[in-house]
Design a protein around this nucleic acid. Structure first.
Lengths: 153, 153
DNA sequence: CACTACATTGGTAAAATATCCCAAAATCGA
DNA sequence: TCGATTTTGGGATATTTTACCAATGTAGTG
């Protein structure tokens, strides 16, 4: 796995903020001509450093006014239990993020919903129907102060 | 604000997963020809429904092995205090997400760092130097079970 | 220091794609 | 049913991506 040099990092930094830059614009910003810039981007894609290109959508425009963080404690934490939980979670579109946490061996989930009613539906028809959950604790977000996809490079 | 119809939602759904689809590919997927599909995408951009296009980068490839959730309690919660905190947070690249939470009026932050040492540096040189913070509580993520940018449409 | 081998760069041309314009079709209201 | 408005589809043009190849730079060796 070759290291990322300064130019690679510049490329990543710019593409994380705007992936619609043309190769010409990107090349100018990082101080290369189009050809080597293009090859570097392709290499970063092939190596999986750039994993995908996505459009970000405004949450309010979709009417998703509720953001919830859910702490979940499982009854047992055998690998089999963890995997079963992870598989279930992964299928649900409402769950945007899920982390296995240190400490109490909890999961932390970020979930979005249109309103409290549909969040309740999510809880009742999906989350609480899973086996092996010891406890669920919801914390609601009043506002999103910062949301970024751009990792520090 | 005109409503989003079924085709708009299909477009958003696809672009959230892959923004490098050509207009022809996208048009095929949503059942339109290129022209109307293109105009719909442009309208969604102008209306701010599509807010940006970004590349997602692999966290491990950048050597960012530590993900931390930080709960923060402020000493006072006047609007002025909240704004000051929000401005400071927004400047720091290590902070990817920040939410104002219900309940104890805490903030919840998601922070990434290369290792525990650099996380400690972040705490010492940035976070704990802010005025008006009553308490800080860090929880570490062992693994990212799910991470998606795609809102349910 | 000179030489070779290797990796990286930059320009150019061809292919793919985005974008714009206009006529045709569909939809909505009265 | 009719007219007005919106949406669609095709084609022409402008932009952009992509592949190729020669030139430049770099590292290692005697």
């Amino acid at each position: 796995m070759p290291e990322l040099d300064a130019i690679d990092r510049k490329i990543l930094s710019h593409l994380q903020n705007d992936s619609r830059l043309t190769m010409q614009e990107l090349a100018d910003k990082v101080g290369l001509s189009v050809s080597p810039c293009h090859r570097r981007v392709k290499l970063l894609e092939e190596r999986g450093v750039i994993s995908r290109y996505v459009a970000t959508v405004d949450q309010k425009a979709l009417g998703l006014h509720v953001s919830v963080f859910i702490s979940i404690k499982l009854a047992r934490q055998k690998e089999e239990d963890l995997n079963r939980f992870a598989r279930a979670i992964s299928k649900w579109d409402e769950v945007l993020e899920c982390y296995l946490m240190t400490g109490n061996r909890d999961y932390l989930l970020r979930v979005v919903a249109a309103d409290l009613a549909s969040y309740e539906t999510f809880l009742k028809t999906k989350l609480t129907r899973l086996d092996g959950i010891a406890s669920i604790e919801s914390s609601f977000a009043l506002s999103q102060v910062k949301y970024s996809i751009a990792l520090p490079v």
